[in-house]
Each structure stands twice: as structure tokens, then as C-alpha cells.
Simulated scan of single mutants.
Amino acid sequence: MANIASQKKRILRSERERLENRRYTSALKTQLRHLEAAVKAGDSAEIETAQRKYTSLVGKAVKAGALHRNTGSRKIAGAARLVKAAAAA
């Protein structure tokens, strides 16, 4: 642990921010699993809902700084690709 007061505060703040970022990334993984399950089931209404939720969550994570904007775009594009492949099959 640091001896300088401002550094102690910075360590605590960094930990809070790290946990917040983990919440976002964990929620993204969970929502992607929901989308994949909907695609596997073939329920078009559920696919649309899951994709909308996933896209919204990615946008929120980017806005909060948990993800870089290019990473967010890549994740959204990957989800769209998944849905498009399901629609084609």
C-alpha cells in the first residue's frame, strides 16, 4: 500500500473503476450467450430482442469507457454477422 494519501485514494478509485468495467464486460458476455441461444433456437422475435439488448449494452459500455469504440463496433458487427448467418440458414 502506498504511503502518499493521494496515491491511496487513486488505488481505491482504480479498483472501483476496474470492478465497474468488469460488470460491463461480464454483462456483455452473458448477453452474447443469450443472443447465441436465440439464434440456435431460431426464434426470430427473440433474436431481434437479444440483438437490440446486446447492441444497447455495447453502446453503454463504450460510452462509459469500459470498451474502446472500435472494439464496440467490432462486437456489434459480429453480432449482426451472427444474426445474418442465422437468417440465411
Rank of each mutant, 00 (worst) to 15 (best):
L67F: 07
A88Y: 02
A66E: 15
V62L: 06
E46C: 00
K60G: 06
D43S: 08
R81T: 14
A79M: 13
A77D: 10
T55Y: 00
A77M: 02
K63E: 10
L82N: 11
T71D: 03
D43H: 11
S73V: 10
A41D: 13
V83C: 11
A89S: 10
G42R: 10
A77N: 13
A87L: 00
A86P: 01
L57T: 05
A80T: 13
K75Q: 14
T71H: 09
S56M: 02
A85C: 12
G42L: 06
Q51Y: 03
A86D: 06
A77G: 01
A86M: 05
R81Q: 08
T71I: 09
L67W: 08
E46N: 05
R52N: 07
R69S: 15
D43E: 13
A86F: 04
Y54V: 00
Q51P: 11
K84A: 13
I47E: 05
K63R: 15
H68N: 15
G78A: 12
R69E: 12
L82M: 14
A66L: 08
E46D: 11
A50Q: 13
K75I: 08
A61C: 15
R69N: 11
K84T: 13
A45M: 02
Y54H: 08
R74A: 12
V83E: 01
S73N: 04
K63I: 05
L67C: 04
A85P: 04
R81N: 03
S73K: 13
A85E: 13
G42I: 09
G42Y: 10
K63S: 13
L57M: 12
K75N: 10
T71M: 06
L57R: 03
A61H: 04
G65F: 12
A64F: 12
A89K: 15
S44Y: 06
A45Q: 12
L57F: 05
S73A: 12
S73T: 02
E48M: 06
E46V: 09
R52D: 14
A45W: 03
N70V: 02
S56K: 06
D43N: 11
A87S: 09
A66D: 01
L67I: 13
A77E: 09
A85S: 13
A66I: 04
A66K: 09
A50T: 14
Y54R: 04
T49P: 00
R81M: 05
T49I: 10
G78W: 06
R52C: 00
A79Y: 01
L67P: 01
E46G: 14
S44V: 04
I76A: 11
V83L: 06
R69V: 04
A89W: 00
L82C: 03
G78N: 14
R69L: 05
S56H: 15
L82T: 08
I47F: 07
